[in-house]
């Protein structure tokens, strides 16, 4: 469970994020939408303790992320390509993550093989370094990397961007399946309203760092969001 208490971040007098209260229960597929500068990435960075909050705090399973590192075993993320290690092959990268998550080499190999349909034969056994992958395949590799060891919470920033249409559809199924089978909590930000409303049970709309809407997804959610973004 993630819990946010009066969290704010200010850069040189400008408040870029100001969340009074937000609780994301275990197993929820949580969507985050908003235009550029709404504070999506800032929120994720605070959650992962990559930037220091100006006030307030984030707790993951009651652990204050700024005070202890004990939240790390429960959390995984893929934000952008800087989450890949460019000079590794994708297999080595997975072993790296897997070993740190206490999995054996064999377990990791079997685990990632299970995603072969998602990879579409373009990721495994490529005999090249991750830095030489195309943007789309880098993204595929990174998303699956975040799932290794079934972490409780998985944070994905713009997971649909750069993916080809087939993979976008496969990703939607994959996210739902993981959440259902393992009770994974997903935090997903996206500019693609259709995908988000299809995958996420709950959507929070950010504008200039504050929560404007907090919606339980229904059939009319897409219309509602489109109406907001049309203005």
């Amino acid at each position: 469970m993630i819990s946010v208490e009066s969290l704010s971040k200010t850069y040189g007098g400008v408040t870029v994020l100001d969340l009074q209260e937000l609780v994301i229960p275990k197993g929820e597929i949580f969507g985050l939408v908003g235009n550029n500068g709404a504070g999506k990435t800032t929120f994720f960075s605070l959650l992962l303790d990559l930037i220091e909050s100006t006030s307030g705090r984030v707790t993951i399973n009651d652990i204050d992320v700024q005070k202890s590192e004990a939240w790390k075993p429960a959390t995984a993320a893929f934000i952008d390509e800087s989450y890949l290690i460019g000079y590794l092959t994708v297999e080595e990268y997975y072993q790296f993550i897997g070993r740190l998550r206490g999995k054996t080499e064999e377990e990791v190999t079997v685990f990632v093989k299970g995603f072969e349909p998602f990879f579409n034969s373009e990721v495994l056994n490529q005999k090249k370094y991750l830095r030489d992958f195309s943007k789309g395949n880098q993204k595929k590799a990174g998303i699956i990397g975040a799932l290794i060891g079934h972490p409780e919470i998985v944070i994905l920033d713009e997971p649909f961007a750069n993916l080809d249409p087939t993979t976008q559809i496969r990703l939607k199924h994959l996210l739902k399946e993981e959440a259902e089978k393992y009770g994974t909590t997903f935090l997903i930000s996206s500019h693609d309203l259709t995908h988000v409303t299809e995958v996420c049970e709950r959507i929070v709309l950010l504008e200039k760092g504050v929560i404007l809407k907090d919606i339980k997804t229904t059939a009319s959610t897409l219309k509602e969001l489109e109406a907001y973004f049309s203005n």
């Binding site: 990559l50 790390k72 993320a77 800087s82």
Partner: peptide
Amino acid sequence: SEYYSFLMGQNLPY
């Protein structure tokens, strides 16, 4: 430095 954010989020004490 190229992947420091990633490392900081791994299951790995500093």
